[in-house]
Simulated assay, not measured.
Amino acid sequence: MLMLIIIVAILLVAIVTTLAFLYSRQEKMIFLSEKLDKSHVFNFPGEYEERIYRPEEGIDIHGLLFRVPEPKGIVFYFHGHMGSIASWGQWASLFQDHGWDVFMWDYRGYGKSTGVISQERSLHDDAKFLYERISPEYKEKRTIFYGRSLGTGIASKLAVDHIPEKLILSTPYFNFEDVVSHQHPLLPVSMLLKYKFRNDLYLKEVKCPVHLLHGTEDDFVPYESSVMLQEIGDHIELTTVPGASHSDFAIFPEFKLKMEELLK
């Protein structure tokens, strides 16, 4: 009996230690950033300029503003959890080719942006700060928010208070707890996860048309996430991309045709 108690105690200590480790390390597991030297030179086609904004003392948020002659308006692009705009910047041409300027920014600790992510609120606050600084440059123009994967939760939250012409979400999750539970079904995610990104709540409050794009073979963010989001309201439309995964959906004709329609 004593031996059983000892074994149980050891297991409990091991479990608690493991959970504490996962809790303390979750930012490094979620936000897989690529850091860039301040001297890094970008090499994208077309016209673009680097922008640096300071939402609070000691924090610099770096972004790129991609330009076209006589733009229809501006697309605010919220990228995924990996890399930096050194790689995400290639997607700006999708919007530029249809006559849109694009502002793409790196979250804290990504690319040339300084600071670290330690709470969800800072991401939403930074997005609001950047929007309020850049949007006056386009006050007579149209505005679109485009979120990709992780960025869908940031774009959706911003759209609640700052209403764009439309909100486009590619490979969105229902909420962050849902997608992390899908990826790690054996963990007590609701107890560990600090980051909620409640797309399911934000989209109930969004007043603009919402367009979801999702591949049926996405094994990172399940296609069913978008199906559930679509059911929230009549203002939400889902474009299904048959056979597409999380990373290759943009090469499929269903995606290209829908984006062409949305960017007219």
Results as ranks from 00 to 15, higher is better:
250 A>C: 12
241 V>C: 09
116 V>N: 13
243 G>I: 12
79 H>T: 10
251 I>G: 08
221 V>M: 07
264 K>F: 12
239 T>S: 04
97 D>R: 15
198 R>T: 09
142 R>W: 06
73 G>V: 01
91 W>F: 13
10 I>K: 10
41 V>N: 11
15 I>Y: 13
244 A>F: 01
117 I>Y: 04
39 S>R: 12
234 D>I: 01
3 M>Y: 11
239 T>Q: 12
184 H>V: 14
27 E>D: 15
165 E>I: 08
50 E>F: 07
16 V>C: 11
191 M>R: 15
59 I>H: 05
93 S>F: 01
35 K>L: 05
241 V>K: 00
97 D>Y: 10
167 L>Q: 03
71 P>F: 11
214 H>S: 12
44 F>R: 09
76 F>D: 00
91 W>V: 10
33 S>A: 15
8 V>C: 15
175 N>Q: 07
260 E>G: 12
190 S>T: 11
252 F>L: 13
12 L>V: 10
50 E>T: 12
159 A>D: 04
94 L>M: 15
106 D>C: 10
146 Y>H: 09
209 P>R: 05
113 S>G: 14
47 E>A: 13
253 P>D: 09
56 E>V: 11
25 R>H: 11
135 S>C: 05
134 I>S: 08
42 F>S: 11
103 F>A: 04
46 G>N: 13
155 A>F: 05
226 S>H: 02
95 F>M: 08
112 K>V: 05
180 V>M: 14
212 L>H: 02
99 G>Q: 05
102 V>K: 00
264 K>W: 09
146 Y>T: 03
10 I>P: 09
88 W>P: 00
247 S>Y: 08
13 V>D: 09
149 S>V: 06
121 R>K: 14
56 E>M: 13
250 A>R: 15
17 T>N: 13
73 G>Q: 02
117 I>C: 06
183 Q>Y: 06
217 E>G: 12
